[in-house]
Design a protein around this nucleic acid. Structure first.
Ligand SMILES: [Mn+2]
Ligand SMILES: [Mn+2]
Ligand SMILES: [Mn+2]
Ligand SMILES: [Mn+2]
Lengths: 224, 224
DNA sequence: CATATAGTTTTGAGCGGTCAAAAACAAGAA
DNA sequence: TTCTTGTTTTTGACCGCTCAAAACTATATG
């Protein structure tokens, strides 16, 4: 039952990397995995084999790596700890939503089951963390229905921000100062393909232009 | 600036081991250090040299190891994190005083300065942890005046338990069920050298005989 | 003083995780 | 089909931490 901090980080990276793959693509290329972990491709290859030997991943030479259901479960548990810790730090310890990621990155590997269930309870069994990321259940399972982003949602209709897909501090601060945090109601006023931009308005009627890169990081659902 | 979890554990072990040395003895023998860490003597020797090279310890072959003031400071910071975490788990998270040690043993290495200061603040800058162990300040300095134990305190006088010098769960539970936790007022009714025992009584007038081994683990101060 | 004993250091090795650089490969371009 | 390019794998090496077992003190005892 292999599970060092390093292994946990690889599992998380494979899980998250696989969610950024073009549809149809199942295996995460080693180069991508290596880049996301700040590690050499050769190192990632070695670890992919180790994970495969442990039954946590499926590794196909020159193609890439994917988690087995067992690996997926473990990754889910790490994510659960990470996200519950983030929410705990915000709600109980008074941290800002832009300063909890790094702390959680360390705590996720050492917090015991006992403590994490205590935190879960204290927070009232929350479903999402401060960034709107879903919190896996105690079995590591993640329930996640596909969502619109500011790029795909209907124009002119009010929508509620549900999730921010980028942990970068500067971006999170930008989102906060422009009242685009999860829970805020906004509206897409229009999109301009050639300008590569999306114009949104909030409650204060102030308009704001976002590049499509940024717009695609904000998930929303119909308001109401 | 060397400081892995392993190094932190060695620093703590040397610090604490040195506090159990017969007076006059300054250097902690490798065998003792190794035993307290559950490691081979050879391994401890290697690490002692590493610490010496880093300026954190002073190592004398065949004699033992002692912390430099820099090593003492780092050890103090680890102890500060450990003890603040323990108190936090008891006071905020509702854990029992007998179940926080192991959790703190892991958290002490990953909790950031920011988080630990937040915890310290939230707890009102406490001076001792749930076991009565003093909490070093933010510079790693420990203020600790010598204290009596049940073996050395005056007989017949009421005293207040201030500290329990053993983290063993069974012992902590024994202490709790017999109302000997820090804060409790008790009295030594008598000592019997040849029976190797100390008899104490609490508020409920019930008498309890402790072996000297156990009695020496309970620190007290004059009540009032 | 010689010797036995307990404690300590050294040596050689292994494991987990990593890198740099060389070799091998897949897939498209020519 | 052969070349070219970008990616991946392999190799050899290193660092941190550890152990087992052999070599070595220091000290006490006779
Ligand atoms: Mn995060
Ligand atoms: Mn998050
Ligand atoms: Mn403890
Ligand atoms: Mn304690």
């Amino acid at each position: 039952m292999l599970a060092s901090s390093t292994v946990e980080n690889y599992l998380k990276a494979i899980h998250m990397g696989a969610n950024g793959l073009r549809p149809g693509q199942r295996l995460l290329p080693m180069g991508q995995l290596a880049a996301s972990l700040g590690v050499t491709p050769g190192t990632a290859t070695t670890m992919a084999k180790t994970l495969a030997d442990a039954g946590l991943a499926e590794y196909e030479p020159y193609a890439g790596v994917a988690l087995t259901s067992q690996g997926e479960r473990l990754a889910g548990l790490v994510l659960r700890r990470h996200r519950l810790v983030e929410l705990f730090l915000v709600r109980v310890m008074g941290f800002g939503w832009d300063e909890v990621h790094d702390e959680a990155e360390h705590l996720e590997h050492v917090v015991s089951d006992r403590l994490i269930e205590r935190i879960d309870e204290m927070l009232g069994h929350p479903e999402v963390d401060p960034h709107g990321d879903p919190i896996p259940n105690a079995d590591g399972a993640i329930v996640t229905q596909p969502q619109d982003t500011l790029l795909t949602c209907p124009v002119g209709q009010p929508v509620v921000v549900t999730r921010v897909l980028d942990q970068n501090r500067a971006f999170l601060q930008f989102v906060e100062t422009n009242q685009l945090k999860p829970g805020e109601t906004i509206r897409v006023e229009g999109r301009d393909e050639s300008a590569d931009s999306v114009v949104v308005s909030g409650s204060s009627d102030r308009r704001l232009a976002l590049g499509t890169r940024a717009a695609s990081k904000l998930q929303v659902r119909a308001a109401g």
